[in-house]
Design a protein around this nucleic acid. Structure first.
Lengths: 335, 335
DNA sequence: TCGTTTCAGTGAAGCGGTTCACTTAACCAA
DNA sequence: TTGGTTAAGTGAACCGCTTCACTGAAACGA
C-alpha cells in the first residue's frame, strides 16, 4: 500500500514567494518578518498545499509538540478516562498525546518515562507514581512533568494536581462510621495516593480517631486481580461490613467478589469508591464515590504542562477537594 | 525545568569504534557489516550509553515507528479498551501508539487521519469508520491501514478485522424471539457495523424472517446522549419489551434510562449489548452481550498492521464469530 | 550630514541519522 | 597472472526545517 504522498517543502514555498526558506519559516510562525510578508507567505503556502513536516521541525527545533501521558495501568477506568480526555484536550491545542501505560510494573513505568524523555515528548503527564522514587524527581528536572495525584517534593516540577486525600479519607470513614460501620476493609492500589502522607498513615490516624477497626489490603487496578483480593478480604475473619476502595475499578472488583460470595450490597456490605467514574452510577446498586471534578483536574494538568513547555509561568499546584456522592452502595449494616 | 540531557550521537560511537557513522548505523541494525563488527559496535554503543534518536531516524528514513489508533469516540468503553490494549501490544513490539479520537465527528476523524498520514505514522488502526466514504479507500492506498469492523472494499488495505454481524444480529434477535419478545428497539451508533451490509438491512431482513416488530434508533457512544436516546425509545408508543444495542456503552445508557423510568431489567425490559466489556458482567443485572474475543481481534489487527509496515505479507482478513454471553439482562417479557 | 538603531530578510550551518554509489582488499578459478 | 566476484566499509548527499549571525536599507536624532 505504501506510496508516500509527494510533499511540498518549505523550499518550494520560498521560491514561489520569492523569499528565503528562513523567511518562510519565520513567516509561518508569525515571527520576524513583516505582517504583509506573513500574509503573502500564508497565501502561497496554502495555494501550494504546504504543510509543515513535524518530524523535520522536531529535529531542527528539538521540540516535538507531543506530550506523553503515562500511568501505571490503563486497565484502571479512571486512568483510561484521564488519558482519553487529556489526549482530547491536547489535540484541541494542536498537540498530540502519546498515551502509554506500564502494565502495572513500576520498573517499566520508569523505563518508558526515560524513553519518552530522551526521544519524543516535550512534556509528560504522570498519573499515580511512587513519589519516593528519586527517578521522578530527576525526570522533572529535565522535562516538563506534571504529576497527578502525587507531590513531587523537591523537584522543580511543571505542575502538580493533587487530591485532598485527607478530606477524602476522613469523609469516607466518617460516612461509614455515621452509618454504624465499625469493621472496615480499605483496598488501595499499589502506590496509593499520598498527597500529604502515605494513605496508610492517613487511614490509621483517622480510624483511631473514630474508633474504627480498619484493615488495609493492597489491591491491583486490574479487575480480575482486584476481585481476587476483595474475595480474600471479605472472607477474612475480620468480617468487614464495609469496603472503602481507593479506585472505582477496585470497587468493581468488590462488587464482583460480593456477588460470588452471595453478599448483598449494601445490606451485607457497604462499598465506597474513589473516582466516581460515570459507569459507577449505573451499577446496582449505584456506587457511592467521590467526585474529584475531572474536567477541572484534566484542564489544570494540561494547562500546566503547556505552560511549562511554552515557557509561561503560572499556577503550578492545584489541590482538588472531593465531593462525596452518596448513593445506594452504602447503608447501615444489617445486624 | 527543561535542561535537555546531553546526547551521545552516532558520530561519537563511530569515532570510539574507529568506524564511519554509516558502519555504525548498519551495525546497530544488524545489516551490511560483519558479525564481529556488529558485536563490537553494540558494545561500544552501550558503553557510551548511546541510544538512537528516533526523530532523526524518522527524518532520514521516512519511517517513524509509530502507529495511529483512531476511533470515532473514546467515550465508548469498547474503543477505549481497544486503544489501550492495542497500544500495549504495539509497545511490546517496540512501537509507540498515537491514540486519537474524533469526538464523534466524522469530518474530524478524516482530518485527523490525514494529519497522521502526512506526518507521523507508519500505520493506522481504525475502529469503526464509514466505509462508504471514499476517503478511507484512498488513505488505505497511501498508508498501512487496518480497519476494525468495516470492510474497506476496493482498497488495498493492510488488513481488515471484521465482525460476523450476521451471526450477531441473528443471534440476538433469535434469542429475544425465543424468550417471547416481539417488539424490539435496536439502538445503533452512528455508522453502525456493516461488514456484509448495512446494519439496518440486516436487522430488517432478520426481523421479518422472525416476524418481529423491530424499530431502529440512532444513538451515540457518549453515555449521556445514549441515555437520552434510550429514554425516548422506551417511552415511545411502540412499547418495546427489549432493546438490542450495537455497543455495550449504549446498553449502559439504556440501563440508566430504564432506571429513570422505573423499568426493571429484565422484567420490564430485556437488554442485549454487543461488546461484552468486562464491566458489563458487573452491572445489575449482568448484561447479556456478545463476546468477540478481543484478544484475538487486537492481536490480529496489530499483527496485520506491522506485517504491512514491515513488508511481510500475510493474512489480511479475519472475520470474528461472536459468542453470545447470556446473562441476567434478558428474560421472558413479564406480560 | 553622519553615526547609530531598527527592521526585514538572507545564508548557511546544523539537528542526528540513513542510504546510495563507490572503493578496497581478499579470495577464487582458469 | 589475471580478471571477476564478493564482503566489508566509506563518503557524502540528503531528509525538511530552525536558528544564529549577519547584511543592507531605511529611519532617526543631533
Amino acid at each position: 500500500m505504501p506510496s508516500p504522498a509527494k510533499r511540498v517543502t518549505i523550499r518550494e514555498v520560498a521560491d514561489a514567494a520569492g523569499l528565503s526558506p528562513a523567511a518562510v519559516s519565520y513567516a509561518l510562525r508569525g515571527m520576524q518578518v513583516s505582517e504583509e510578508t506573513q500574509e503573502r507567505v500564508r497565501k502561497v503556502a496554502s495555494e501550494l498545499g504546504y504543510e509543515v513536516h513535524p518530524i523535520a521541525r522536531a529535529l531542527a527545533s528539538g521540540r516535538t509538540g507531543m506530550v506523553g501521558i503515562l500511568g501505571p495501568s490503563l486497565e484502571d477506568l479512571w486512568q483510561q478516562r484521564l488519558a482519553a480526555e487529556a489526549g482530547r484536550a491536547l489535540l484541541a491545542r494542536d498537540r498530540f498525546a502519546l498515551i502509554l501505560d506500564a502494565g502495572g510494573d513500576p520498573e517499566r513505568q520508569r523505563l518508558l518515562a526515560a524513553q519518552l524523555r530522551d526521544q519524543q515528548v516535550d512534556g509528560l503527564i504522570l498519573s499515580p507514581i511512587d513519589p519516593s522514587d528519586g527517578f521522578w524527581i530527576e525526570l522533572a528536572d529535565s522535562l516538563a512533568v506534571v504529576s497527578i495525584g502525587d507531590a513531587l517534593t523537591g523537584a522543580d516540577a511543571a505542575g502538580e494536581v493533587l487530591f485532598d486525600n485527607r478530606t477524602g479519607v476522613t469523609g469516607a470513614l466518617e460516612h461509614l462510621h455515621a452509618l454504624g460501620h465499625r469493621r472496615i476493609a480499605v483496598l488501595s492500589p499499589p502506590g496509593a495516593p499520598t498527597t500529604d502522607r502515605p494513605a496508610e498513615v492517613l487511614v490509621a490516624s483517622e480510624s483511631e480517631r473514630l474508633g474504627l477497626d480498619v484493615f488495609m489490603v493492597s489491591a491491583a487496578y486490574e479487575l480480575e486481580q482486584a476481585t481476587d483480593v476483595a474475595r480474600e478480604a471479605l472472607r477474612s475473619e475480620r468480617q468487614p461490613t464495609a469496603a472503602f476502595c481507593f479506585s472505582d475499578s477496585i470497587a468493581y472488583g468488590v462488587y464482583a467478589a460480593a456477588r460470588e460470595l452471595g453478599l448483598t450490597i449494601p445490606d451485607d456490605l457497604s462499598v465506597i469508591g474513589y473516582d466516581d467514574h460515570p459507569i459507577s452510577a449505573l451499577l446496582a446498586p449505584p456506587l457511592t464515590s467521590f467526585d474529584w471534578n475531572s474536567d477541572r483536574l484534566i484542564d489544570a494538568a494540561v494547562g500546566m504542562t503547556l505552560a511549562a513547555i511554552e515557557g509561561r509561568r503560572g499556577r503550578r499546584r492545584l489541590v482538588i477537594e472531593p465531593q462525596l456522592q452518596s448513593r445506594g452502595s452504602t447503608a447501615a449494616p444489617r445486624h
